[in-house]
């Protein structure tokens, strides 16, 4: 089955990229690994009949957000950091054990639940295309959509306020944007 092959290959890439993120010494590498991971996930979305989400994943996530990360990493010069356990090195082995336990638990859930065992049927025509997504978004989810726009605005304002030079905001006359 070609699809299974594609899934296995893409999944392997995604896992490898995630592990790369986990172990990368350089933060820039970590960013790139994550971008790779996101590309892999976009392919998986296509497999799952979600072309719109796949496109958004690449354009917004991999494109815009990760570039922002990359920008900040380089701006702060935080590529290299001493990556030992630090003052709480004891928690690393504990975290590994816990991760394994969590994975085991999740695996038990995934494979013991009957509903997800069946192989997927071919998706119906037009499922997940931008037209269908758009209709649902602007009909069923109109209010949440509008609320997110407000959320983004607030986030934007918040980000601007946070990074402005704190010293000059206090006694600067209002209406002046000379900085």
């Amino acid at each position: 089955m070609g699809l299974m092959t594609v899934f296995i290959l893409t999944g392997a890439v995604a896992i490898a990229a995630a592990l790369g993120l986990l172990f990368a010494r350089n933060a820039v590498y970590a960013v790139l690994f994550l971008v790779l991971n996101m590309f892999a996930l976009a392919v998986l979305y296509l497999l799952l009949g979600a072309p719109f989400i796949a496109m958004v994943q690449i354009v917004v996530y991999a494109g815009a957000i990760m570039v922002l990360f990359l920008f900040v990493v380089m701006l702060l010069g935080a590529e290299e950091l001493k990556e030992d356990g630090g003052p709480i090195g004891w928690q690393r082995p504990l975290a590994l054990v816990l991760g394994v336990v969590l994975l085991a638990e999740l695996a038990y859930f995934v494979f013991a639940a009957s509903a997800t065992k069946a192989r997927l049927l071919p998706s119906p025509d037009g499922f997940g295309d931008p037209h269908a997504v758009g209709l649902t978004l602007f009909q069923k989810y109109l209010l949440p959509f509008e609320v997110t726009s407000v959320l983004l605005l607030v986030a934007m304002v918040g980000a601007i306020v946070l990074v402005r030079n704190g010293k000059r905001t206090a006694d600067e006359p209002t209406g002046s944007d000379a900085d």
């Binding site: 003052p87 709480i88 928690q91 504990l94 975290a95 816990l98 336990v101 969590l102 638990e105 999740l106 038990y108 859930f109 013991a112």
Partner: peptide, 26 residues
């Protein structure tokens, strides 16, 4: 302790334990 990762670990332990409990129930 003041270490953020410590607190994250607490959350992680909580998640693992809760899942374990749910497993035991299911």
């Amino acid at each position: 302790s003041g270490y953020v990762r410590n607190y994250a670990l607490s959350v992680f332990v909580g998640v693992v334990l809760m899942l374990g409990y749910l497993l035991w129930v299911v």
